[in-house]
Design a protein around this nucleic acid. Structure first.
Lengths: 209, 209
DNA sequence: AAGATTAGATCAGG
DNA sequence: GTCTGATCTAATCT
């Protein structure tokens, strides 16, 4: 039953194999110092059944469809945003610190950063595109005034040896958009974020998701 | 204004930078042909260059830093799953056939098999763990009925010279889990998978990711 | 190649 | 409807 080299856990007067020492309620293995967080693992049916017009099956796994959505409070969000401003890709150590500081699970920490990066990227692309379109529109307005000729698209060709200086004027000067995690890092590193007054516009802009 | 290597679009008598060639109504960039499906062939910059906040040259090969995510349709997935069921590690020849059958690139084929193997392995481990917890739970229920003593966790200690035969009964007999690519191979080889009725539970279990 | 992580899309709760 | 935490998975990195 027990070998001399087995790792065991002692509880009261009894001794258990490490692997046998489990939560009597859920069966999860108990580890010293580890918090038992009931992160419910809910198997979801494959979603690709929806593709190709397949009728989505209504059978929903006997009501286990409820997704547990964590609600982050202001303090947790502040901590996350501050850290994100300094580094949008925290390493394991930093994540561990965040787990401790926020009381959230590592999983929630990871997901939050994933979504945050994704959101910021989308926003930056959208911003860039809008700016470019705005510049373009202005140029277009000016051009229309001169030529009066609407453009029609054709296939792109390489421009070799064609006459220079046709039509477009100087190159576009589109301001490059800097991803938040770059533009904010310097700010984050030069300020004590925990002491920032959250009511300042500076701060609002910084931590705004 | 224009360089000899610039990609340009020609419209009527005018020439535009590719990036300047946009819909005059909405400002969106106009592209020839319908699909932009840029199945990237060239390796893009290593991620670390982007992360390290390095000056990262503006060049960047027309951007293209965004990941192109392939969406597999049902037919392609069916082909891949069927092949996977027969052999989770296809050789070069089989991969070549899959490329032809699915119209996907060899790279996508390879990545799909990599991810599929990884997923299945993870699932098998999870399953094994759950089974173990289930067995444990049952044993625990029985034990609780006898002793009525709830367990409390403490730090693990080495078990040297402690009295034997305390509390736990015989060793757990947990059924070993067989990886899908082994348990399914036989099935795959003894059935015509392409003629399987996808509505049978047998098939569903087989191809379920 | 395996294993871990990321990115992009989508789902779903509030 | 928007927002955002959660999930899935192709793509990537190590």
């Amino acid at each position: 039953m027990f070998e001399k080299t087995d790792l065991v856990m002692r509880a009261r007067t009894k001794i258990y194999h490490l692997d046998c020492f489990r939560c009597s309620a859920c069966g999860k293995q108990l580890l010293p110092g580890g918090r038992v967080r009931a992160q419910r693992r809910r198997p979801l049916l494959p979603l690709r059944l929806r593709r190709e017009g397949k009728p989505l099956r209504k059978e929903r796994r006997e009501g286990k469809t409820t997704r547990v959505r964590t609600v982050l409070n202001e303090k947790q969000l502040h901590t996350l945003r501050t850290c994100y401003a300094a580094n949008c890709r925290p390493d394991a150590l930093m994540k561990e610190q965040l787990v401790e500081m926020t009381g959230l699970s590592p999983r929630v920490i990871r997901v939050w950063f994933q979504n945050k990066r994704c959101k910021d990227k989308k926003r930056s692309l959208l911003m860039k595109q809008m700016q470019q379109e705005k510049v373009w529109e202005e140029k277009q307005m000016a051009l229309q005034g001169i030529t009066g000729v609407p453009m029609v698209a054709s296939s792109p060709i390489r421009h070799d040896g064609a006459p220079m200086g046709v039509g477009m004027g100087g190159p576009l000067d589109v301001t490059a958009y800097q991803p938040p995690w770059k533009s904010l890092t310097e700010f984050a590193l030069t300020h004590d974020l925990d002491r920032l007054d959250p009511s300042t516009p500076q701060y609002q802009q910084l931590v705004q998701q």
